[in-house]
């Protein structure tokens, strides 16, 4: 059932939801872009509909909410270890269709790859997802090619239409707040076509693709900064860090921190050996993981086609172009 509410009514809802959940969504933060006098759209807590950016693609994804960039596993001192409390006991997350598909990939990594992950699982519980439908494609998106343009896995949808907010609820918790609200006929829109299309390859010949000359172009073009993986809603790698607090040598914390296979040291082992010295080889490692490597394990591509990697790359390297090159090389 769909309902239409004005801004004041929506803000009232936000404050009621806020009593039960933390609310996270994309927010436009003025003048916080990398370059001066530019803005950025990132995930943060939202208290009012004004905080929520419904029209732009977020630069970074929702993943930080359940996979914090830096997360303390435990504090230690002479007496032992203490696991910190979780950041939230439940959250409402505003996201897009592709992001909801990305969530499946995160679940695969943290709940199916080996035993379920304690820290992920506890933040993953009790989440509600509010879909921000896309009526048209953003730049660099190729969700249609990656089959992530449509989703049914939401609890609620929100769309701004002529200054009013239209909601469709599939979840009891949300539905109860709409009793008495104006009802209307509504179909959730979705993207039917992107400018960018990516060709799928059923079976990739790893050996042939690895030997391909196509990667050499990226040895010099890519600067191995890692932005592409950090903005990616399906990249999950992290590194363990132990630190001690300066004033007390015996107390400190062990934390895990997001890592990037594009960045130096990701694969460095004791003695200094590095498995992928060249940036082009890192690109291949990343690219194949995003498609065939993950598909071999979980039956779906990891990449969901949000194009955030293309949006952010300072060297204008396009990942969808790389995927199409792989398809061509595999012919």
């Amino acid at each position: 059932m769909a309902y239409s509410l004005d801004k004041i009514a929506v803000d009232e809802l936000f404050s009621k939801w806020g009593e039960d959940y933390l609310i996270y969504g994309p927010t436009l933060i003025k003048n916080t872009g990398r370059l001066s006098d530019t803005d950025s759209v990132r995930y943060d807590e939202v208290k009012s509909i004004d905080d929520l950016e419904l029209n732009l693609k977020s630069d970074y994804s929702f993943k930080d909410v359940i996979l914090p960039i830096s997360e303390v596993l435990f504090y230690y001192n002479e007496d032992g270890m203490m696991v910190p409390k979780q950041k939230h006991n439940g959250a409402i997350i505003f996201l897009r269709s592709c992001d909801l598909h990305a969530l499946d990939r995160l679940d695969q990594m943290f709940m199916e790859n080996g035993k379920p992950d304690f820290y992920y699982t506890r933040l993953r519980e009790n989440l509600k997802f509010v879909l921000i439908p896309c009526s048209k494609s953003f730049e660099n998106c190729f969700c249609v090619s990656m089959n992530s343009n449509v989703t049914k896995n939401y609890d609620l949808t929100i769309e701004e239409i002529n200054g009013e907010y239209v909601f469709e609820s599939k979840d009891e918790y949300f539905t109860k707040f709409f009793s008495g609200s104006k009802e209307l006929d509504y179909t959730v829109p979705y993207v039917k076509e992107n400018d960018i299309k990516v060709e799928h390859v059923e079976k990739i010949n790893n050996l042939a693709i690895t030997k391909s000359e196509m990667w050499r172009e990226y040895d010099s073009r890519c600067i191995a900064c890692g932005r592409c993986t950090l903005v990616c809603p399906t990249c999950t790698c992290w590194t363990m860090q132990d630190i001690h607090y300066g004033d007390n040598q015996k107390a400190g914390e062990r934390r895990r921190v997001q890592a990037s296979c594009m960045v130096d040291n990701f694969d460095r082992v004791a003695g200094g050996h590095v498995y992928r010295e060249k940036n082009g080889d890192r690109m291949r490692y990343k690219a194949l993981h995003k498609i065939s490597d993950h598909r071999e394990r979980y039956g779906v591509d990891m990449c969901i086609g949000c194009g955030r990697c293309d949006d952010i790359c300072p060297e204008y390297i396009s990942f969808s172009t790389i995927l199409n090159k792989i398809a061509k090389e595999s012919e």
Binding site: C237, T239, R256
Partner: peptide, 17 residues
């Protein structure tokens, strides 16, 4: 390989699938 977790979570030790 480089390992951070030993549990299939950190991604460092992955080679292909």
């Amino acid at each position: 390989r480089r390992m951070s977790c030993g549990l299939g979570k950190c991604g460092h030790c992955r080679v292909n699938s």
